[in-house]
Design a protein around this nucleic acid. Sequence first.
DNA 1: TCTGGGGTCCTAGGACCC
DNA 2: TCTGGGGTCCTAGGACCC
Length: 451
Amino acid sequence: MRAVASVLHLDLDAFFAAVEQRDKPSLRGKPVVVGGVGGRGVVSTASYEARKYGVRSAMSTREARSRCPHAAFLSGRFHAYRSTSERVMAVLREASPLVEPLSLDEAFVDLATARLPDLEIPTVTALAEQLRRQVEEVTGGLTASVGVGTSKFIAKVASELDKPDGLVVVPPGTEMDLLRPMHVSVIPGVGPATTERLRRAGIHTVADLETVSEDELIRMLGTAHGHALHQLGHARDDRPVVPERETKSVSVEGTYDTDLTDRRLMAALLTRQARNVSDRLRTSGLAGRTVTIKVRLHDFTTISRSTTLGSPTNTAGTIGRLAVGLLQDLETTGGVRLLGVGVSGLADWIQEDLFGDTDDADEAAKAGDDLDADAPSTAGAKTTTHTWAPGMDVEHAEMGRGWVWGSGRGVVTVRFETAETPPGPVRSYRIDDPDLRPWRPESGTGATLAP
DNA sequence: TCTGGGGTCCTAGGACCC
DNA sequence: TCTGGGGTCCTAGGACCC
């Protein structure tokens, strides 16, 4: 906790949904839900219009549909979110070099390293308002909520207080007055399980928490968690704003609409995921020693199995074979709803290591050699049949640009509009119509970037 | 026909070494 | 015929975050 309010937290309001409404004028003022649209999808973001109906992040899409059937359900366009996010982060980095993005729509900014005459409340307030205006400008109208305080914890709590499109500055010294009446779940790290444990001990608010000794919290929650909670419960937070953090693991997972029972299919899916992980490791110049698979059974029990090599790998062949090998030992009768592959124990990977990338002897024997797996897996054969996901940008040879309104039974429905061309006609096509193709986003960004 | 995907951090037990 | 610790690495699972 600092003596001045010099930590800023910025949070873009209903970010994914707001980008969709910006780019698709017919959705403005209407409920929009972005998330998984399949049978087992969940909501990533709901627009404020959809929240009126009780639609929330992390809710199953099925439930969201029953609460708000007339909402637009979109599967998300991450290129658009990423490029919008980059503009926002650039604005923040102009204000201070110390910017810590937490996700595409959130970041901390350290104002102690900003070019400011002082860190008094009027000064940081003016900067915060300026940043909000600039964010609106560079994003084409998106709003942000901002909080400023003496620590990350306080800044983050503050940004939640006046959503959407709000700004709250918490004056130094008033932190506990703000926190005491609040529920313990405002504290980062206090989720459902910790909330329940605290509830059973009669601890509901931060004021309740304030009276509990550190030893008692450590006894209840363990060393690390107990200590952290005791600190935050007294608004003590010295966590620095760190601009870059090292990647610790890379993983890919998927939940399937119907449970898998065919082991050969499971192996094939793991192999494909391994290629995906490998591609991502290689484009970031990383390799790792530990390969982990994740299996979620029909009853939602989740199992992980891992194995560690003598030296790092990032080849699709090794990762895939180890993953499939780990699956062999698992009992999966009853069905599998999720499969995943990850690599951790990462080390920077440089070209020379290509020749030193020898696995443990037994692994090498089991796995053969990696050379067969080194062909780029991104060069998949192009077919004319595309997967049409709601919300996806498309282009029609005659009609021009639009987006997928819906699809099913071999037909895709397109609304022809962009942010610049307000609501146009709606047309339906066969999914294999050669005149219709996915619209490629700003292809000017250069090299093929990981998805 | 409840319950995503990509992560991070922590804990606990066992192996192994000194 | 009795019983150390400490440290590190690995594995599995769980809580949590956005």
